[in-house]
Design a protein around this nucleic acid. Structure first.
Lengths: 168, 168
DNA sequence: CTCCAATGCGTGCAATCCGCACGCATTGGA
DNA sequence: TCCAATGCGTGCGGATTGCACGCATTGGAG
Protein backbone atom coordinates (compact mmCIF):
# COMPACT_ATOMS: atom_id res chain seq x y z
CA UNK A 1 0.00 0.00 0.00
CA UNK A 2 2.94 2.25 0.73
CA UNK A 3 4.49 1.68 -2.64
CA UNK A 4 1.75 3.71 -4.18
CA UNK A 5 2.66 6.84 -2.31
CA UNK A 6 5.62 7.80 -4.45
CA UNK A 7 3.63 7.42 -7.60
CA UNK A 8 0.63 9.27 -6.25
CA UNK A 9 2.89 11.99 -4.97
CA UNK A 10 4.50 12.33 -8.36
CA UNK A 11 1.15 12.62 -10.08
CA UNK A 12 -0.19 15.22 -7.70
CA UNK A 13 3.03 17.16 -7.54
CA UNK A 14 3.17 17.08 -11.29
CA UNK A 15 -0.19 18.77 -11.58
CA UNK A 16 0.86 21.31 -9.06
CA UNK A 17 4.26 22.14 -10.45
CA UNK A 18 3.51 21.73 -14.08
CA UNK A 19 2.35 25.07 -15.01
CA UNK A 20 -1.41 25.06 -14.84
CA UNK A 21 -2.18 25.71 -11.21
CA UNK A 22 0.89 27.80 -10.74
CA UNK A 23 0.07 29.99 -13.69
CA UNK A 24 -3.60 30.26 -12.81
CA UNK A 25 -2.89 31.20 -9.26
CA UNK A 26 0.10 33.46 -9.42
CA UNK A 27 -0.46 35.10 -12.75
CA UNK A 28 -3.90 36.28 -11.79
CA UNK A 29 -2.70 37.15 -8.33
CA UNK A 30 -0.09 39.61 -9.49
CA UNK A 31 -2.06 40.86 -12.48
CA UNK A 32 -2.80 44.52 -12.19
CA UNK A 33 -0.47 45.12 -9.29
CA UNK A 34 1.93 46.94 -11.57
CA UNK A 35 5.14 48.44 -10.25
CA UNK A 36 7.09 45.77 -12.07
CA UNK A 37 5.55 42.85 -10.24
CA UNK A 38 4.98 39.80 -12.40
CA UNK A 39 4.74 36.08 -11.91
CA UNK A 40 8.49 35.76 -11.60
CA UNK A 41 9.24 38.80 -9.53
CA UNK A 42 6.75 37.78 -6.86
CA UNK A 43 9.07 35.02 -5.68
CA UNK A 44 11.79 37.62 -5.53
CA UNK A 45 9.69 39.96 -3.46
CA UNK A 46 8.57 37.11 -1.29
CA UNK A 47 12.10 35.84 -0.82
CA UNK A 48 13.30 39.29 0.00
CA UNK A 49 10.62 39.65 2.64
CA UNK A 50 11.65 36.31 4.09
CA UNK A 51 15.40 36.90 4.08
CA UNK A 52 15.62 40.59 4.74
CA UNK A 53 18.31 42.71 3.05
CA UNK A 54 20.46 40.46 0.91
CA UNK A 55 22.62 40.64 -2.16
CA UNK A 56 21.31 39.75 -5.56
CA UNK A 57 23.51 36.70 -5.62
CA UNK A 58 22.18 35.34 -2.36
CA UNK A 59 18.61 36.00 -3.33
CA UNK A 60 19.21 34.36 -6.67
CA UNK A 61 20.47 31.24 -4.99
CA UNK A 62 17.39 31.25 -2.79
CA UNK A 63 14.89 31.40 -5.59
CA UNK A 64 16.95 29.47 -8.10
CA UNK A 65 17.68 32.30 -10.50
CA UNK A 66 20.86 33.74 -11.89
CA UNK A 67 22.20 36.93 -10.31
CA UNK A 68 21.73 38.71 -13.57
CA UNK A 69 18.06 37.85 -13.64
CA UNK A 70 17.62 38.97 -10.07
CA UNK A 71 19.37 42.19 -10.89
CA UNK A 72 17.03 42.88 -13.76
CA UNK A 73 13.93 42.14 -11.73
CA UNK A 74 15.36 44.26 -8.96
CA UNK A 75 15.77 47.17 -11.32
CA UNK A 76 12.19 46.90 -12.44
CA UNK A 77 10.91 46.59 -8.90
CA UNK A 78 13.11 49.49 -7.92
CA UNK A 79 11.52 51.57 -10.63
CA UNK A 80 8.18 50.53 -9.19
CA UNK A 81 9.24 51.79 -5.80
CA UNK A 82 8.98 48.41 -4.10
CA UNK A 83 12.63 47.85 -3.35
CA UNK A 84 15.76 49.90 -2.89
CA UNK A 85 19.41 49.20 -3.49
CA UNK A 86 21.84 50.07 -0.74
CA UNK A 87 25.56 49.52 -0.69
CA UNK A 88 26.64 47.12 2.00
CA UNK A 89 28.42 49.15 4.69
CA UNK A 90 30.59 46.16 5.45
CA UNK A 91 31.65 45.47 1.89
CA UNK A 92 31.21 48.01 -0.85
CA UNK A 93 31.20 45.27 -3.48
CA UNK A 94 27.85 44.10 -2.27
CA UNK A 95 24.62 45.81 -3.12
CA UNK A 96 21.87 44.99 -0.71
CA UNK A 97 18.31 44.72 -1.94
CA UNK A 98 15.85 46.09 0.56
CA UNK A 99 12.08 46.22 0.54
CA UNK A 100 10.62 49.68 0.83
CA UNK A 101 7.62 50.20 3.07
CA UNK A 102 5.46 50.01 0.02
CA UNK A 103 7.21 46.82 -0.97
CA UNK A 104 6.57 45.32 2.43
CA UNK A 105 2.92 46.17 2.34
CA UNK A 106 2.58 44.87 -1.21
CA UNK A 107 4.10 41.54 -0.25
CA UNK A 108 1.91 41.41 2.81
CA UNK A 109 -1.23 42.01 0.80
CA UNK A 110 -0.39 39.44 -1.83
CA UNK A 111 0.58 36.94 0.80
CA UNK A 112 -2.59 37.54 2.73
CA UNK A 113 -4.62 37.07 -0.42
CA UNK A 114 -3.10 33.70 -1.07
CA UNK A 115 -3.24 32.70 2.54
CA UNK A 116 -6.91 33.63 2.58
CA UNK A 117 -7.60 31.51 -0.45
CA UNK A 118 -5.91 28.50 1.02
CA UNK A 119 -7.44 29.13 4.40
CA UNK A 120 -10.88 29.21 2.88
CA UNK A 121 -10.23 26.07 0.93
CA UNK A 122 -8.77 24.16 3.86
CA UNK A 123 -11.63 25.20 6.08
CA UNK A 124 -13.87 22.78 4.24
CA UNK A 125 -11.55 19.92 5.03
CA UNK A 126 -11.62 17.79 8.13
CA UNK A 127 -9.39 19.81 10.42
CA UNK A 128 -6.98 17.00 11.09
CA UNK A 129 -6.57 16.36 7.41
CA UNK A 130 -5.84 20.01 6.71
CA UNK A 131 -3.38 20.13 9.55
CA UNK A 132 -1.63 16.97 8.40
CA UNK A 133 -1.50 18.18 4.85
CA UNK A 134 0.10 21.49 5.69
CA UNK A 135 2.54 19.92 8.10
CA UNK A 136 3.51 17.38 5.49
CA UNK A 137 3.84 20.06 2.88
CA UNK A 138 6.16 22.06 5.08
CA UNK A 139 8.28 19.04 5.77
CA UNK A 140 8.35 18.09 2.12
CA UNK A 141 9.43 21.54 1.07
CA UNK A 142 12.05 21.74 3.76
CA UNK A 143 13.57 18.43 2.77
CA UNK A 144 13.61 19.33 -0.89
CA UNK A 145 14.82 22.85 -0.59
CA UNK A 146 18.45 22.16 -1.25
CA UNK A 147 17.98 18.94 -3.07
CA UNK A 148 18.11 18.52 -6.80
CA UNK A 149 17.58 15.49 -8.92
CA UNK A 150 21.28 15.34 -9.69
CA UNK A 151 21.98 15.13 -5.99
CA UNK A 152 19.60 12.27 -5.49
CA UNK A 153 20.68 10.18 -8.43
CA UNK A 154 24.30 11.19 -8.83
CA UNK A 155 25.93 10.82 -12.20
CA UNK A 156 22.59 10.34 -13.83
CA UNK A 157 22.36 13.02 -16.42
CA UNK A 158 20.56 10.74 -18.81
CA UNK A 159 18.17 8.48 -16.97
CA UNK A 160 17.00 7.03 -20.25
CA UNK A 161 20.39 6.06 -21.55
CA UNK A 162 19.96 2.47 -20.51
CA UNK A 163 16.33 2.22 -21.47
CA UNK A 164 15.94 3.81 -24.84
CA UNK A 165 18.20 4.17 -27.81
CA UNK A 166 19.05 6.99 -30.10
CA UNK A 167 16.18 8.03 -32.31
CA UNK A 168 18.15 10.46 -34.45
CA UNK B 1 -4.68 27.54 15.65
CA UNK B 2 -6.49 26.86 12.42
CA UNK B 3 -6.04 30.40 11.19
CA UNK B 4 -2.38 29.69 10.73
CA UNK B 5 -2.97 26.99 8.18
CA UNK B 6 -3.66 29.29 5.27
CA UNK B 7 -0.54 31.27 5.93
CA UNK B 8 1.62 28.21 6.42
CA UNK B 9 0.16 26.69 3.31
CA UNK B 10 0.97 29.82 1.34
CA UNK B 11 4.53 29.85 2.57
CA UNK B 12 5.15 26.21 1.79
CA UNK B 13 3.34 26.32 -1.52
CA UNK B 14 5.29 29.41 -2.40
CA UNK B 15 8.57 27.62 -1.98
CA UNK B 16 7.28 24.75 -3.99
CA UNK B 17 5.81 26.69 -6.86
CA UNK B 18 8.24 29.50 -7.00
CA UNK B 19 10.83 28.20 -9.24
CA UNK B 20 13.54 26.75 -7.08
CA UNK B 21 12.38 23.25 -6.30
CA UNK B 22 10.57 22.95 -9.57
CA UNK B 23 13.62 23.93 -11.53
CA UNK B 24 15.96 21.81 -9.47
CA UNK B 25 13.78 18.78 -9.79
CA UNK B 26 12.45 18.88 -13.30
CA UNK B 27 15.32 20.54 -15.07
CA UNK B 28 17.77 17.96 -13.90
CA UNK B 29 15.26 15.21 -14.45
CA UNK B 30 14.82 15.88 -18.12
CA UNK B 31 18.40 16.96 -18.72
CA UNK B 32 20.12 14.68 -21.17
CA UNK B 33 16.97 12.93 -22.26
CA UNK B 34 17.07 14.74 -25.57
CA UNK B 35 14.45 14.11 -28.22
CA UNK B 36 13.04 17.55 -27.58
CA UNK B 37 12.13 16.95 -23.97
CA UNK B 38 12.69 19.92 -21.71
CA UNK B 39 11.29 21.26 -18.49
CA UNK B 40 8.17 22.51 -20.24
CA UNK B 41 7.54 19.67 -22.62
CA UNK B 42 7.56 17.15 -19.83
CA UNK B 43 4.19 18.37 -18.60
CA UNK B 44 2.98 17.98 -22.15
CA UNK B 45 4.23 14.44 -22.39
CA UNK B 46 2.87 13.67 -18.98
CA UNK B 47 -0.49 15.19 -19.76
CA UNK B 48 -0.63 13.31 -23.01
CA UNK B 49 0.04 10.07 -21.21
CA UNK B 50 -2.71 10.89 -18.76
CA UNK B 51 -5.32 11.98 -21.29
CA UNK B 52 -4.58 9.75 -24.22
CA UNK B 53 -4.89 11.04 -27.78
CA UNK B 54 -6.10 14.63 -27.66
CA UNK B 55 -5.94 17.78 -29.71
CA UNK B 56 -3.37 20.46 -29.07
CA UNK B 57 -6.09 22.75 -27.86
CA UNK B 58 -7.38 20.33 -25.27
CA UNK B 59 -3.92 19.50 -24.08
CA UNK B 60 -3.09 23.17 -23.88
CA UNK B 61 -6.08 23.79 -21.68
CA UNK B 62 -5.00 20.91 -19.49
CA UNK B 63 -1.49 22.16 -18.88
CA UNK B 64 -2.32 25.84 -19.09
CA UNK B 65 -0.50 26.64 -22.30
CA UNK B 66 -1.63 28.23 -25.52
CA UNK B 67 -2.39 25.92 -28.43
CA UNK B 68 0.42 27.48 -30.36
CA UNK B 69 2.89 26.62 -27.67
CA UNK B 70 1.62 23.08 -27.48
CA UNK B 71 1.91 22.83 -31.21
CA UNK B 72 5.52 23.91 -31.16
CA UNK B 73 6.44 21.53 -28.38
CA UNK B 74 4.58 18.82 -30.22
CA UNK B 75 6.62 19.46 -33.31
CA UNK B 76 9.83 19.16 -31.40
CA UNK B 77 8.70 16.03 -29.62
CA UNK B 78 7.52 14.66 -32.92
CA UNK B 79 10.98 15.25 -34.33
CA UNK B 80 12.30 13.39 -31.34
CA UNK B 81 10.05 10.47 -32.13
CA UNK B 82 8.13 10.63 -28.90
CA UNK B 83 4.75 11.63 -30.28
CA UNK B 84 2.85 11.43 -33.54
CA UNK B 85 0.23 13.57 -35.13
CA UNK B 86 -2.81 11.84 -36.50
CA UNK B 87 -5.86 13.42 -38.08
CA UNK B 88 -9.01 12.83 -36.11
CA UNK B 89 -11.14 10.34 -38.08
CA UNK B 90 -14.25 11.96 -36.69
CA UNK B 91 -13.30 15.53 -37.52
CA UNK B 92 -10.57 16.36 -39.98
CA UNK B 93 -10.06 19.74 -38.41
CA UNK B 94 -8.59 18.12 -35.36
CA UNK B 95 -5.09 16.80 -35.19
CA UNK B 96 -4.66 14.26 -32.45
CA UNK B 97 -1.40 14.08 -30.56
CA UNK B 98 -0.46 10.53 -29.73
CA UNK B 99 2.43 9.11 -27.77
CA UNK B 100 4.60 6.69 -29.67
CA UNK B 101 5.79 3.58 -27.92
CA UNK B 102 9.04 5.31 -27.30
CA UNK B 103 7.15 8.26 -25.93
CA UNK B 104 5.20 6.05 -23.58
CA UNK B 105 8.33 4.39 -22.27
CA UNK B 106 10.06 7.72 -21.89
CA UNK B 107 7.22 9.09 -19.83
CA UNK B 108 7.14 5.93 -17.80
CA UNK B 109 10.83 6.09 -17.02
CA UNK B 110 10.74 9.74 -16.03
CA UNK B 111 7.67 9.19 -13.96
CA UNK B 112 9.20 6.22 -12.22
CA UNK B 113 12.29 8.24 -11.48
CA UNK B 114 10.29 10.94 -9.78
CA UNK B 115 8.04 8.49 -8.05
CA UNK B 116 11.12 6.69 -6.76
CA UNK B 117 12.56 9.88 -5.40
CA UNK B 118 9.38 10.78 -3.57
CA UNK B 119 8.88 7.23 -2.44
CA UNK B 120 12.35 7.16 -0.96
CA UNK B 121 11.81 10.48 0.73
CA UNK B 122 8.42 9.60 2.14
CA UNK B 123 9.70 6.29 3.41
CA UNK B 124 11.56 8.15 6.15
CA UNK B 125 8.35 9.74 7.34
CA UNK B 126 5.93 8.26 9.82
CA UNK B 127 3.71 6.24 7.52
CA UNK B 128 0.51 7.93 8.59
CA UNK B 129 2.01 11.34 7.98
CA UNK B 130 3.15 10.38 4.51
CA UNK B 131 -0.25 8.93 3.74
CA UNK B 132 -2.06 12.00 5.02
CA UNK B 133 0.25 14.30 3.14
CA UNK B 134 -0.22 12.58 -0.19
CA UNK B 135 -3.96 12.28 0.28
CA UNK B 136 -4.16 15.95 1.16
CA UNK B 137 -2.01 16.86 -1.79
CA UNK B 138 -4.27 14.97 -4.13
CA UNK B 139 -7.32 16.63 -2.74
CA UNK B 140 -5.69 20.02 -2.88
CA UNK B 141 -4.70 19.59 -6.48
CA UNK B 142 -8.08 18.27 -7.46
CA UNK B 143 -9.86 21.19 -5.89
CA UNK B 144 -7.54 23.70 -7.50
CA UNK B 145 -7.36 22.17 -10.90
CA UNK B 146 -9.97 24.33 -12.53
CA UNK B 147 -9.76 27.19 -10.15
CA UNK B 148 -7.92 30.40 -10.76
CA UNK B 149 -7.40 33.38 -8.56
CA UNK B 150 -9.84 35.37 -10.64
CA UNK B 151 -12.48 32.74 -9.98
CA UNK B 152 -12.01 32.93 -6.28
CA UNK B 153 -11.98 36.69 -5.96
CA UNK B 154 -14.11 37.73 -8.89
CA UNK B 155 -13.60 41.14 -10.34
CA UNK B 156 -10.37 41.50 -8.49
CA UNK B 157 -7.79 42.14 -11.09
CA UNK B 158 -5.94 44.52 -8.85
CA UNK B 159 -5.98 43.24 -5.30
CA UNK B 160 -3.91 46.19 -4.20
CA UNK B 161 -6.15 48.85 -5.59
CA UNK B 162 -7.87 49.45 -2.30
CA UNK B 163 -4.76 49.06 -0.21
CA UNK B 164 -2.02 50.91 -1.98
CA UNK B 165 -1.97 53.97 -4.09
CA UNK B 166 -0.27 54.83 -7.29
CA UNK B 167 3.46 55.16 -7.01
CA UNK B 168 5.10 57.67 -9.29
C1' DC C 1 -26.00 21.87 -54.01
C1' DT C 2 -24.08 26.18 -52.51
C1' DC C 3 -22.80 29.38 -49.18
C1' DC C 4 -21.02 30.80 -44.87
C1' DA C 5 -20.12 31.19 -39.96
C1' DA C 6 -17.66 28.43 -36.60
C1' DT C 7 -13.84 25.73 -35.21
C1' DG C 8 -9.09 24.25 -34.99
C1' DC C 9 -4.27 23.77 -36.43
C1' DG C 10 0.32 25.69 -37.45
C1' DT C 11 3.43 29.71 -38.33
C1' DG C 12 4.98 34.84 -38.47
C1' DC C 13 5.97 38.18 -35.32
C1' DA C 14 7.05 40.94 -31.39
C1' DA C 15 7.88 40.84 -26.59
C1' DT C 16 9.87 38.68 -22.70
C1' DC C 17 12.99 36.08 -20.00
C1' DC C 18 17.11 33.60 -18.94
C1' DG C 19 22.14 32.32 -18.59
C1' DC C 20 26.76 33.39 -20.00
C1' DA C 21 30.38 36.52 -20.48
C1' DC C 22 32.42 40.84 -20.04
C1' DG C 23 33.73 45.27 -17.88
C1' DC C 24 34.11 47.78 -13.75
C1' DA C 25 34.63 48.54 -8.73
C1' DT C 26 36.06 46.92 -4.23
C1' DT C 27 38.47 44.01 -1.03
C1' DG C 28 42.23 41.83 1.31
C1' DG C 29 46.58 39.87 1.34
C1' DA C 30 51.47 39.49 -0.70
C1' DT D 1 51.93 49.09 -4.31
C1' DC D 2 50.21 45.34 -6.79
C1' DC D 3 47.13 41.63 -7.87
C1' DA D 4 43.97 37.75 -7.48
C1' DA D 5 39.25 37.16 -5.81
C1' DT D 6 34.58 38.59 -5.38
C1' DG D 7 30.31 40.73 -6.80
C1' DC D 8 27.24 43.75 -9.40
C1' DG D 9 25.03 45.29 -13.71
C1' DT D 10 24.63 45.11 -18.81
C1' DG D 11 25.39 43.31 -23.75
C1' DC D 12 24.26 39.51 -26.26
C1' DG D 13 22.39 35.29 -28.19
C1' DG D 14 19.11 31.65 -27.55
C1' DA D 15 14.69 30.11 -26.29
C1' DT D 16 9.80 30.49 -25.16
C1' DT D 17 5.29 32.49 -25.14
C1' DG D 18 0.86 34.68 -26.63
C1' DC D 19 -1.50 37.01 -30.26
C1' DA D 20 -2.91 37.30 -34.87
C1' DC D 21 -3.31 35.56 -39.31
C1' DG D 22 -3.99 32.24 -43.11
C1' DC D 23 -5.70 27.88 -44.39
C1' DA D 24 -8.64 23.74 -44.11
C1' DT D 25 -12.74 21.40 -42.48
C1' DT D 26 -17.34 21.05 -40.62
C1' DG D 27 -22.22 21.52 -40.28
C1' DG D 28 -26.29 23.97 -40.89
C1' DA D 29 -29.22 27.37 -43.64
C1' DG D 30 -31.20 28.73 -47.89
Amino acid sequence: MNDELGRRCEAALGELLQRRIRVNLYEDLVAGVGRGVDITSYPILSGLARLGPVTAGTLGAEVGLDRSGVSRHATRLEDGGLITRRPDPADARNTLLILTDEGESTVAVLRDRLAGIFEQQLRSWPSHQAEQFVAGLERFVRENHDRSFADIVPGTNNPLATTDQEAD
